[in-house]
Structure formats: C-alpha cells, structure tokens
Write a protein that binds this DNA or RNA. Structure first.
Length: 104
DNA sequence: CGTCTGACGATAT
DNA sequence: TATATCGCCAGAC
C-alpha cells in the first residue's frame, strides 16, 4: 500500500477552483485539505505549473502576503486581481485572512 | 544519482 | 513584528 499519497497536483487544482470569489486560501491550507500533510511547498510547485483554469491568484502564503517568484509583474497582477474581487489589502500589502480567508 | 533550490509553515528568539 | 532556523520533498542541474 502507498503509505504516502501519490503526488496528484490535480487535487490541488480542484481545491483551488473551489475557492469562492472574494476569498483567498493559503498553500498550507490546500496542502492539508489535499491530505498532503506538511508539503505546503509543493502546493507552490503545483501552482507554478498552474493550468489556465486555476485561480492561482487566490492562493497566498500563511502570512496573508503574496509570494513572489522571479517576476515582479506576478505579485502586482495577483494583487490587482484580488482587489478586483473585493479582497482588501492593508498598508503592508497583506490580506486579513480572518475576513477573506477561505473557510470550507 | 548527489546536491541545491524553493508561489511554505511552524517554532524559536 | 521581524528575522532566523529547521522540516518537508518534488524538480532542476
């Protein structure tokens, strides 16, 4: 038996698609929902290969900040997309997960 | 196949 | 609150 679940990025994408508009989820949250345990980092890798039908912009880190890759364009776009959905950012550029955090 | 890196998280200081 | 460190493990090289 597989003591470890196969790394199905698909499940992460499915979960990401379930995030309602105007809400955000964290990598660790998706990792736990996907029964991945502490593989939160790999959720990032999954998003790195995000299909076009996945709202990757609704996935941020546990601090409520937008993690950035190499391009600065990315986090800027992500913030714009979230603000367009009604998600508010504070002066530090962080989201209040208590209000906008996705609660399945 | 060994080593380094990383869209992270939790804990310690 | 910010910074540092460790854990986790799939890819890149």
């Amino acid at each position: 038996m597989q003591s470890v679940l196969p790394v199905n990025y698909k499940i992460i994408y499915e979960l990401a698609r379930q995030i309602p508009r105007g809400s955000v989820a964290t990598y660790g949250q998706l990792a736990r929902l996907a029964k991945w345990g502490r593989r939160a980092r790999h959720v990032g890798w999954a998003m790195h290969a995000c299909p076009d039908d996945v709202p990757w912009h609704r996935v941020i880190n546990a601090k409520g900040e937008i993690s950035r890759r190499a391009s600065s364009d990315h986090h800027e776009l992500q913030r714009l997309l979230l603000e367009a959905e009604g998600v508010e950012f504070d002066a530090r550029g962080r989201v209040d997960l208590g209000r906008f955090g996705w609660k399945p």
